[in-house]
């Protein structure tokens, strides 16, 4: 009965596929669970275990390279897919790198007056890991976008390339206006501060000599009396912390930066912004 044999063959194929699928699922399960456990712990510490985190689609998008080229400096950017209005806006974006020693990079607090809630920065990536951006909207809902990033190869390390320079230049700040800034329109800026953002280490196992941790704990940017962003962070931010942000200038004013590090040292500077005369 050729017909019947065919049916049996199909049936066997079906079983084979089912078994293969089962093997695949079983084989993959431990990894998925392990990764998820890391994240569940981080999530519980950040938000408690009862808050729902929605899929980020339509709210935020996360861009990061597939592979970290340099473990010390991985550019990531968060793009807001919803408009910032006084009624409904993204009020905070938290970045998490699951497999880093200090997984929470930090939280950027954002404000509706700036028009666009995009943020980009640079982080250290120690291992193959999920990177997550969790947005909290003004109504208290959470939305998450994530991306898996492969660790860098070669001799790349999440470490300083020129330690003496990093310490010598500590506290120096730069502000850059990206493109022309026009009155009443969202415009992009870049802030950076030279700082080792350093996790601390034991330098000599015999003498127990330590170089203590020294990292940027907060960054606060204001334009005149309007808040632009406030960042609270940790050692996963790259050396020389950098952030690109949006601001909507109403008039010529001074942009002010205040940075506090883990030694409770405060760095402050102001820059007059330039507005395009056409505006």
């Amino acid at each position: 009965m050729p017909q019947q044999r065919k049916a049996e063959t199909y049936c066997l194929h079906g079983i084979t596929i089912a078994i293969l699928a089962a093997i695949l699922i079983i084989a993959k399960a431990p990894i998925a669970v392990a990764n998820d456990e890391t994240w569940q712990d981080i999530r519980a510490s950040l938000y408690g275990s009862d808050r729902v985190i929605h899929d980020g689609e339509g709210v935020i998008k996360l861009d990061a390279p597939d592979r970290a080229l340099d473990a010390a400096t991985v550019p990531i950017s968060v793009t807001a897919e919803m408009e910032q209005t006084e009624e409904h806006y993204i009020r905070a974006v938290t970045l998490v790198i699951d497999e880093n020693p200090a997984p929470v990079v930090g939280t950027f607090h954002l404000f509706p007056g700036n028009g666009i809630a995009n943020i980009s920065t640079r982080v250290r990536v120690n291992a193959y890991t999920n990177i997550r951006a969790i947005a909290e909207t003004s109504d208290g809902e959470l939305y998450m976008a994530q991306k898996f990033v492969k660790a860098s190869g070669g001799c790349s390390a999440p470490a300083s390339k020129d330690h003496d320079l990093a310490m010598a230049r500590l506290g120096k700040m730069r502000l850059k206006q990206i493109g022309a800034w026009r009155k009443g329109e969202p415009a992009e800026g870049q802030f950076m501060i030279s700082h080792p953002n350093y996790s601390g280490m034991q330098i000599d196992q015999v003498t127990q000599l330590w170089i203590p941790a020294r990292y940027v704990r907060s960054i606060e940017l204001t334009l005149g009396d309007k808040p632009i962003l406030r960042f609270e962070g940790d050692i996963s931010m790259s050396e020389n912390p950098m952030v690109r942000f949006f601001v909507r200038p109403d008039a010529e004013a001074e942009l002010h930066a205040k940075v506090v590090d883990s030694d409770e040292k405060t760095f402050e500077q102001s820059w007059p912004i330039e507005l395009d005369p056409a505006s």
Partner: peptide, 17 residues
Amino acid sequence: DTNHGRNVVAAYTELEW
């Protein structure tokens, strides 16, 4: 291909200062 991109990153973080 495995190293040039990383060199660009390293150069960028140095030269932007």
